[in-house]
């Protein structure tokens, strides 16, 4: 039933792509979060009193009980490093000039963790449970992007 390919030059492949790109807008809660980060340099979360849970970044609704939430809780700027990973290769598998450290941080006052880079730790080994704080770019350089946060920096205490 299945024919063997007798002549390899008959095997045909068509190179191509799907010519699509996307414009992602941050949504109702995402916009409140990013505008506050830009304007005030603080991190906003959303508190659900019923579920006793504070989401970060801010959300429009509670995924546990479906209550409508506001971007109404300032969290951080310090928190606890809950996990980290060190990346030595990029998306294509190419080696990175300097490794990137990613941290999952539970900011003070929040239940959810925030993902960002961990900065300035090369002189000492990182440990889960370590206190860190958010480093935000200077006011004039902030544009309303998650990159307005430079990353987390270990602190004493």
């Amino acid at each position: 039933m299945i024919e063997r390919i007798a002549r390899p030059d008959e095997v045909r492949r068509w190179p191509g792509s799907i010519p699509v790109s996307h414009r992602y807008t941050p949504g109702v809660a995402g916009q409140a979060f990013l505008e506050t980060l830009r304007d005030r340099g603080v991190i906003l979360g959303s508190r659900c009193d019923r579920c006793r849970y504070t989401y970060v970044p801010a959300r429009l609704f509670c995924e546990r009980c479906f209550a409508e939430l506001a971007a109404d809780v300032e969290v951080g700027p310090a928190g606890v490093l809950r996990s980290f990973a060190i990346g030595f290769v990029g998306v294509e598998g190419e080696p990175l000039e300097s490794p990137l450290t990613l941290g999952l941080v539970q900011l003070d006052g929040a239940d959810a963790c925030l993902l960002h880079l961990v900065l300035d730790h090369s002189d000492e080994p990182l440990e889960i449970g370590r206190r860190v704080e958010v480093v935000v770019k200077p006011a004039g350089e902030r544009t309303g992007s998650i990159l307005d946060i430079e990353g987390f920096r270990p602190v004493e205490g």
């Binding site: 792509s17 799907i18 790109s21 996307h22 992602y24 807008t25 990013l34 830009r38 309303g144």
Partner: peptide, 13 residues
């Protein structure tokens, strides 16, 4: 504010 534009850089044969 904060909008991001990106294309998935996937190619096929």
């Amino acid at each position: 504010t904060g909008a991001v534009e990106d294309a998935v850089d996937a190619r096929y044969a």
